[in-house]
Design a protein around this nucleic acid. Sequence first.
DNA 1: AATCTCATCAACCGCTAGTCA
DNA 2: CTGACTAGCGGTTGATGAGAT
Length: 306
Amino acid sequence: MDVKGRGGTKTSEVQADRDNDGENEAAEEEEEDLRRGPWMVEEDFALMDYISRHGEGRWNSLARCAGLKRTGKSCRLRWLNYLRPDVRRGNITLEEQLLILELHSRWGNRWSKIAQYLPGRTDNEIKNYWRTRVQKHAKQLNCDVNSKQFKDAMRYLWMPRLVERIQASAAAAASQPSSFPSTSSAGTFSRCMTATEPTPNFTFTPKFPRGNATPENSSTGASSESFGTQFSSGSNSLDHFQGPAAVMDCYQATAKGSYPEQSLMSSPSDNLQSYGADFQDNQFWLDEFSDNLWNSDNVWFPQQQP
DNA sequence: AATCTCATCAACCGCTAGTCA
DNA sequence: CTGACTAGCGGTTGATGAGAT
């Protein structure tokens, strides 16, 4: 990582950036104490050790007290994106892809909000996924990622295809004599998860959201009982969001040309009924797109790695 | 074997909103 | 009310590794 030699401590962290473009000597004097770039193992240990003893707190003072020559901002980011015990590493699963697509269509680039519904995943990770996979493909198709065409393609082609793959994986897993240990999660989503993760070498204990606070209007938030129940436990801003299983139901129905009685989306302007009409309008374009889609599965559905 | 290209992702930046004295 | 400070968000950058040439 490039060390630009800008920034500073405490107030100067932001202020130095804004005021002097690295020419303020006082700020520079302060910042020479600060480390930037990749974290060293010792730093990670120091941060983890401090948080395990004292918990998270005010990040700037935490950084100082832990003896870290880092900004509080940097410590916070390192903890949230990498060191937190419940951070989930590894490939984004098909189910997670489906959720990301669905939630992004609903909320746009609200990465942290989307991340709340993918326990263990960070906003950064989801954002990276979107940029590297989704935007890349939009680019290949010469259409804007925010265009109606691309969104329709996602909804009518990519997402149903994801559902197919999830089902296929689930079926394959079911036919195998328990070669994978069952996870603690119940429900459609978690059943599928085992199929795409041959080596689940982590203990998945989702916290919701961000590991501690009350989940968005959920009373069952900290429970690790079930992916599914967590998703369906919210009620406020998610409205009638039914969780991954409902997402899958919707797209199964859509793929078959029928629509569920209860829309996944609560907004009248954003429900599957209207998608049906839109679908007719865009049939021609989607047909072409579909060809492209089937010919580039490796882009849409990169191989899961062990 | 060397070099180039591309994809990925950790870490940074700027900005905004919230909190508190 | 105001200003200082902090936390958190979304956008961007750059290091790195893998695959292609």
